[in-house]
Structures are given as C-alpha cells and as structure tokens.
Design a protein around this nucleic acid. Structure first.
Lengths: 134, 134
DNA sequence: CACGATAATCTACATACGTAGAGAATGGCA
DNA sequence: TGCCATTCTCTACGTATGTAGATTATCGTG
C-alpha cells in the first residue's frame, strides 16, 4: 500500500514546482513560466511532463485540443522522498547526524535557530504525550 | 576553486561507503564486500569504480597487476552534496522547513531529541561569538 | 618454464535523462 | 470556409547509469 519513495531529478523538480504553483496547468503555460530560468523549449517541457505522467508524478487530462496537467505527488511526498534518499544513502538512516550536518551547512541566523529549537521543544512535548514506539 | 557539489547515485553511494571503510582497497575486495547485499559481479563493481575515478570521486593507482583505489571525496563532502541537493530542489534553500520535515519524517526518541536540542544550543552559543553574516 | 588462479581490459546493451526539431492537427477569426 | 497561430505528436540523439560477459594479461607455484 505505502507508495515507495519518490525521487525527482532537478529537471523534474523545476517542472513539478511550477505545476504546484498553478494547477491545473498546460504544457505551454509551464514552458512560458520556466522559459526564463531554463531556456527550455516547448518540446522539452512537454517531454518531461509526459514522462512524469508515466512515472505517476503528474496526471494529464485532455480538454479539446489542450492537455491539462495536475500534480499527483504532493510537495510533502516529494520533499519526504528527497530527504529519505539522503538519509538512507548519505547517513545510513541516522537522523541526528543528518540534522547536525544540515546545521553545519551554512551559518544560521539566531532567528532560524530559535525556530528550530521551538520545533524540537514541540516535538518533545509530543513524545511525552504519545506513547513511544518500541 | 570551490568544488561544485557532489552528487552520488545509490550505486555510487554503496561503492564509496565500502571504499571509505577500507581504504586503500581493490575492486575485487570491494566486490566481495558488496556481493552479499548487491549481488554485483566483479565487472559491475569495476565499471562503477572506474567511472567514479573519471568523475573525480575516487583515485586509482596501479601496483603490479592490481589497481588500488582510495576515495577523493570525503564523507563530509558527499553528505553535504546530498543535503544541498535536497535543500536546493525540495526546499528552495530554506533550511528551517527542511529541518522540520526531517523531524516529522519519523518518530524520534527523546534521546535523539535531546541530542538535537544540544546541537542547537551549541550553535546558538557559536552565533553569539562569531559575528553574524549580514 | 608452463599452468592455473586472479585481476584486468574491452565491449555491449538496455533503460533513463536532457534536450529538441519536424510535421500534423485543431480551433478561432477574417 | 480558408488561413494562421497554437498545440500536439513523433522521432531522434547524445550522455549517463546499471549491469555484465568475453577475452586477455599477469603473478606465483610446481
């Protein structure tokens, strides 16, 4: 039942983010949105989108002469998939080292640190409420 | 000068982790280590390793009939690269949401939470010492 | 020195990915 | 109704990736 983790290439990320931003949408629409940053032609965008449909990342529906697309994968799922990939491969599933590496990745503002600390605190409260997993 | 971020495929991750674990090493050695989990033949392992040399991930040196390999990419670099990929594509560079998603990825033990909280606290102290960026 | 075990080299092939052109279809407007 | 613009469909091609077989070279041993 549980869908296996999603993995997206950079090109696919660009596409799906544009789709999320304006669902439902058309290939020409996405192309014009991405044209500036990528320089992709209509053909390129269309090919990518159709391949993503095959992969189950997007869904397409034909309306008259146009095809509209919407995302099947949610931002959460996609983000999760990316994280799982890194977690599994780069950190052998160990979450704390991954967080640590992330925190060292760049200088954090004290604002960011505060936010993250708050997240931890909230989590802690949850852990105490919800009986722990094994 | 600054090396551009490293990205590894799953196969490459397996290889490089085995290499890190026993540098310097040989292809037959890595193959026998990975045989159980992957079923890869010598040819497969060898091809992967040589391609990784071309990419600058590993370095090879010939000693008599054997070729020994060592990693060029460090674990830090490789992990960093993976993280950057996710950060850039899945989170548009926003670190806090990434940490948040990570924390929601699975139930954390209160031990893990403590460790992470400690990391934050340490960071906070650093921020106060080191003059902030911008 | 000849042979067998081990390692190496070369070649191959299917699938995925990035990128796109050429030509067909279709719908709206003059 | 015919033409033009818009969109679609098909095909293509180079590189990357996963996977590996066939053949050759080499080192140590008898």
């Amino acid at each position: 039942m549980s869908k296996k983790p999603i993995e997206l290439t950079e090109a696919e990320w660009r596409i799906i983010k544009a789709v999320w931003a304006g669902e439902p949408c058309t290939a020409p629409g996405i192309q014009s949105v991405l044209e500036g940053e990528t320089g992709w032609t209509y053909s390129t965008v269309r090919t990518l989108m159709d391949r993503m449909v095959v992969k189950g990342l997007l869904a397409a529906k034909k309306l008259g002469k146009m095809t509209t697309y919407r995302a099947v994968a949610t931002p959460r799922q996609a983000q999760r998939g990316e994280l799982m990939y890194a977690l599994k491969n780069a950190f052998n599933g160990a979450l704390t080292p991954m967080v640590e590496c992330l925190l060292n990745t760049r200088d954090l503002t004290s604002d960011e640190l505060d936010k993250i600390e708050l997240l931890i605190q909230t989590k802690k409260r949850d852990v105490n409420k919800t009986p722990g997993r094994g």
